[in-house]
Design a protein around this nucleic acid. Structure first.
Lengths: 241, 241
DNA sequence: GATACTTAATGTCAGAATGACTCTAACGAA
DNA sequence: TTCGTTAGAGTCATTCTGACATTAAGTATC
């Protein structure tokens, strides 16, 4: 939305058809500092034009007439942040009349997940930065984007099938401890390692490999793999977008 | 969408900004015939203009620049069917490039529930009719509306908090048997009456009244009331819409 | 009025799932 | 070799769940 051509810069509200945009809440996982719990984090872009110039905002932009909504989300994401997430899901469409001070704007919000490798490989500059989800400096965002972020977190916490989501935040293979860290970051509380292991072993969407993670300080943990079933009926395939 | 003014009737795809519309899947409950289970049903409108003239479609229409999306859904609903549902929730936004043969159309789908009284008071005419959810004559609908209906049903079945939804499909007070009928219609299977009673009594969002339903054939059942808590973060208040 | 029939409502019991906890295994560091 | 830490398995009491039996309370029929 920071680089949004094609929208009339009207300072007066007119009876024009609503402009259509997409914005994406991108969530990744960051390892906890000195023994602390893992944390969810997200990249934001700084707005370089009015309205709300200088404020942090969700990456996004207008919907082109020749692309689907999911494609628009993926394209805007790549253009503004260089990221290509492994998971993309439509979140909600925000269309209150006065959510933008300059024009009537309907935004289709998307929800993306990045695995640890992708988070580490992200370039940050003056206008793109990562924030912890509870960083007080992003308590206020441009437009109603703070509301959108809160809704994304609410949706994430209320997912019934965590396996799929957790594995998108990690790589292809992962330890049970790493997976537990993801769960703890999402739920915001510690989980019993033994019970967590037991329940996941019964879940059947996670299977053990013959590999172990070497190089750690202690007993090397076994690596596991996600063997998920089909997606939700309307989940976006980001490889097409 | 059957009475949709304001859209250019272009037969050729042009690079215009996408048109914005709302459509609503309205679900109600209908008592089962001769001992059979209750059934979910929905009203559809017949399209009277191209494209897809003559086919059944979801009620809906364009979004006016001076109304919010929820308001647009409620207004279009009242205009096309005369219904004012007690529950309205945004479902999903459909924006594939070729979902309409004549123009680029982005539709924000809503999901509404009617209680039994409202279903009974509905007028049907040549262009508005109710169908059982499994009626084979609505296997095909205009545009991608069949996909939208299927997604609404999927969402309904995957709701974690049924209490709220169930009570919107019934009146203010209801028997546990009626509530069980709603659950059975949604889930598509019979439930054990005794176990159903036990789990609901532990749910705490349903409390018993001192009244009983008289006039039945057998022992009169106690009436219950829903004492739900706050709504989802983004649930639409249809009294404002 | 007695009996049968149907539904309402409660109770019982075994198996599954869950939370708190203990114990052993396997590595690196000292 | 010993210690500290994490991996991983096991125990036990409690709760939840499905299947089923039992009693209560009304109407319909004879």
């Amino acid at each position: 939305m920071s680089s949004a051509p094609g929208w009339a810069n009207v300072n007066e509200r007119r009876n024009l058809p609503p402009a259509l945009a997409v914005s994406t809440v991108i969530l990744g996982i960051r390892e906890g500092q000195d023994g602390g719990p893992d944390k969810l984090c997200l990249p934001l872009v700084r707005r370089i034009r009015q309205p709300h110039a200088g404020l942090w905002a969700l990456p996004g932009g207008p919907v082109d007439a020749r692309e689907s909504l999911g494609q628009a989300a993926g394209r805007n994401l790549a253009e503004t942040t260089g990221l290509r997430p492994s998971y993309l899901e439509q979140l909600y469409t925000f269309g209150d009349i006065d959510r933008s001070p300059t024009h009537r704007l309907v935004t289709i919000a998307y929800f993306a997940l990045l695995n640890a490798d992708q988070v580490g490989a992200t370039v940050q500059d003056e206008n793109v930065a990562w924030f912890d989800i509870d960083d007080p400096s992003i308590a206020q965002l441009a437009f109603d984007h703070r509301k959108i972020v809160d809704y994304a977190l609410w949706r994430l916490r209320n997912k019934t099938e965590y396996g799929q989501i957790a594995h998108r935040l990690l790589g292809e293979r992962f330890t049970l401890a790493a997976l537990r860290g993801v769960y703890e970051a999402i739920l915001g509380r510690r989980l019993d390692p033994a019970n967590f292991r037991r329940t996941l072993k019964n879940t059947a969407t996670i299977e053990e490999t013959d590999e172990y993670l070497a190089g750690g300080q202690h007993r090397p943990p076994r690596l596991y793999r996600y063997v998920g079933h089909g997606p939700d009926p309307l989940e976006v395939d980001p490889t097409q977008a």
